[in-house]
Amino acid sequence: MTTAAQFASVRYLVDDVQAAVDFYTTHLGFTLRSNPAPAFADVTRGPLRLLLSGPATSGARATPADLGTGGNRIHLIVDDLDTETDRLRSAGVAFRSEVVRGPGGRQILLADPAGNLIELFEAAR
């Protein structure tokens, strides 16, 4: 089995998780990797892991309201979210959200200099 660290993960916020799974697996050659809850699934195609997050997921709740319908971002897995946020805050990096806890773990959003979102994610233990 391929581990999560071997993928490049991108989170897409979707209105209907099952419809998104059906679309990506039927039309674009993705394979369902996991669907642990109706609010979330992930599909893969080669080294791309697409995280399909419905409105009830922590990923959707963490998105700042001023982004409108946007909210797609790079998803980076970290071992210790608290250590990473402390390190980045010490370096002067500003965050776009507070830490949000959900069924799969905890996450926080920051933006690159161009405003592109990056999610730091620590899986539930």
Rank of each mutant, 00 (worst) to 15 (best):
G68Y: 00
L50S: 04
D80C: 07
S34V: 09
R87H: 12
R96T: 01
A114L: 14
L13Y: 03
A4G: 12
G102I: 04
T63G: 06
R61N: 04
D80A: 07
T69M: 13
D15C: 14
T63I: 15
V14I: 10
H27Y: 14
R106P: 12
V78L: 12
A114S: 15
A37T: 07
L13P: 06
T25S: 03
G71K: 05
V93F: 08
L52T: 05
G105L: 03
N72A: 15
T44M: 10
F95A: 06
V43R: 00
I108F: 08
F95M: 06
L51F: 08
G71P: 04
V17L: 02
A60Q: 06
I108M: 03
T31L: 02
T63K: 12
R45F: 01
E119F: 11
F30G: 04
D22C: 08
S90M: 12
T85H: 00
T3F: 15
L109V: 09
T69R: 13
I118S: 02
A8E: 15
S90Y: 11
E119C: 11
P113L: 09
T69G: 13
R33F: 12
M1D: 13
A19E: 08
A39P: 04
L28V: 13
D79S: 10
D16H: 06
V14T: 09
L67E: 00
G70M: 12
F40P: 02
A19P: 02
A94E: 09
A39S: 12
F95Q: 03
I108V: 10
G70R: 13
A37H: 12
P55E: 07
V78N: 03
T2S: 14
D42K: 02
L32V: 08
F40H: 05
T2Y: 15
M1I: 09
G102Q: 04
T85Q: 03
L67W: 02
D79Y: 11
A60P: 00
D86K: 14
L109H: 08
P55Q: 07
T2F: 15
V100A: 02
A60D: 04
G46S: 05
A111K: 14
I74M: 13
A37G: 13
